[in-house]
Amino acid sequence: MLVVEKNALTEEIESLVQRFGKDRSSLLKILHEIQKTHRHIPDFAQQEIARLLDIHPVEVYSVITFYAFLNTEPKGRNLVRVCKTITCDLQGKDAVCKAIERELGCKFGESSKDNKFYLEYANCLGLCDMGPAMAVNERVYTNLTPEKAVEILNGVK
């Protein structure tokens, strides 16, 4: 990481600490914001968060690894999460997933070659009455067909 990048990241974290407070209870809020802007939580950010909140970096790492939405490695720019829980499964999530994989040329658990997408399975998204369901970043899409799912992804910038 370049020094300028490091400095920018430090500044970003400092302002988050200012916004949420220096207490340990700010940790997940800070991690949430960093994850959102950087799509992962880089090593350097972990160290800086630890330093500014006065906790051990291992504590930060251990919290990150607990939560499905937080990750330490960079992933494709747009996070695609298709529900794999039973109701969506029975409503045809397999066909949807296969169509997405064919179209993007990568498997679930991988980023697409152009790094535009990362595909993963999610547990129940709370949209079971409108399955199959998926989330692309914060937006959700319901009643998917293979064709509709692919169209949605094609429309993502």
């Binding site: 829980t85 039973i86 109701t87 547990n123 129940c124 709370g126 949209l127 009455d129």
Partner: peptide, 11 residues
């Protein structure tokens, strides 16, 4: 937190 599979009333 409504995470129980098949629950969406809180939404």
């Amino acid at each position: 937190d409504e995470g129980e599979p098949g629950t969406f009333k809180d939404r």
